[in-house]
């Protein structure tokens, strides 16, 4: 473990509404994921399904630091990032169902969420493959003077492939406004970090490119926000790329197909003691920001949002067969 933990809630400088909204988003992600897992088991959702349980503080804290015109580009465990960015849970669930109303019209599924109107640029399923894209998006931001910051999220498993080093090198050379955010959940699928990476402190890999880098407690939503605010300011101010390593843990398997034979139950239980949602609830209660009534209402609201999403997905039409030949070319 390790990584910076944020100051107490009261010192965070955030108002009650913002703080409660963080909790609301984290709860929504958790419930969305639990429901998706359940529906997968019932055969309503197919393909690969990678759930984000346990990592909610990373998405919610980091993405809260962005402006609306900034961009998020992420890996295939993308549900949490999409929800934190404000994508409509209904259309996300519909995408999981392979329906025409899904965010990618049923073309992409779980791993390829996308909503250009909200600056959510995917959902990419080749490990490390989207890091070069983030560099290109940063180049476009600089060239077209968009003042955009690109938040590029990937896992620890994405830091051992050539793309990672190529992208960090070019990001620094071209001075692009990219915040690289590594979600270090200690496993690349079923292979532990120490079996895959010669360096266990992933943030140190950025240091060789002279990119400022730090490790953050990814179970602490306020620590994630604080660190990302700083990283975003650095990038937006023309300082070039910044690197964050969020220490986190996924509570469920790599995907729904994962029997989880590679990690001890005791390790999982230990991390669950640091459940980011429970930790944040406790802190908000201690600070007097969250009342039992608030929590009860929030539980109800998020339950309803997920139920509405499922209903919407169930009732949505499948894509028409004519759609098979659509969207291959812009200029066919």
């Amino acid at each position: 473990m390790g990584g910076k933990t944020a100051a107490k809630v009261g010192q965070s400088g955030l108002d009650k509404k913002t703080l409660l909204n963080f909790l609301h988003q984290m709860l929504l992600i958790r419930k969305f994921e639990d429901k998706a897992g359940e529906l997968y088991a019932r055969g309503k959702i197919a393909g690969f399904l990678h759930l984000y349980n346990g990592e909610e503080a990373v998405a919610v804290g980091a993405i809260s630091a962005l402006e609306p015109h900034d961009l998020v580009i992420t890996h295939y465990r993308d549900h949490g990032h999409a929800i934190a960015r404000g994508l409509d849970a209904k259309r996300l669930m519909a995408e999981l169902f392979g329906k025409a109303t899904g965010v990618a019209k049923g073309h992409g599924g779980s791993m390829h969420f996308f909503d250009a109107s909200l600056g959510f640029y995917g959902g990419w399923a080749i490990v490390g493959g989207h890091l070069p894209l983030a560099v290109g998006l940063g180049l476009a931001s600089n060239t077209l003077r968009k003042n955009q910051v690109i938040l590029c999220i990937f896992g620890d498993g994405g830091t051992n492939i050539g793309y990672f080093y190529e992208s960090l090198n070019v990001a620094k050379l071209w001075n692009v406004p990219v915040v690289f955010l590594c979600e270090n959940n200690l496993y690349g699928m079923g292979t532990a970090l120490h079996r895959a990476s010669a360096i266990r402190e992933v943030y140190r890999k950025a240091a060789v490119f002279d990119i400022p880098a730090e490790r953050v407690d990814g179970m602490d939503v306020l620590a994630m926000r604080e660190a990302t605010v700083k990283a975003v300011a650095h990038a937006r101010g023309g300082g070039g790329p910044y690197f964050l390593e969020a220490m986190t843990y996924r509570f469920r398997g790599h995907s729904m197909a994962d029997p989880i034979l590679y990690r001890d139950k005791s390790e999982v239980e230990e991390w669950k003691q640091r459940d980011p949602i429970i930790l944040f609830q406790q802190r908000l209660r201690e600070e007097g920001v969250l009342t039992p009534q608030d929590l009860e209402q929030m539980e109800r609201e998020t339950d309803e949002l997920v139920a509405d999403a499922v209903k919407f997905a169930e009732e949505s039409p499948e894509p028409p067969l004519s759609d098979l030949h659509e969207d291959i070319y812009a200029n066919p």
Binding site: V135, G136, N169, L173
Partner: peptide
């Protein structure tokens, strides 16, 4: 660009997505 074809092609995709 450095001799690194993966990031060259990937940056081209990203740049195109970004409006270039």
């Amino acid at each position: 660009a450095p001799i690194a074809e993966g990031v060259i092609a990937g940056a081209a995709v990203g740049a195109a997505m970004g409006g270039l």
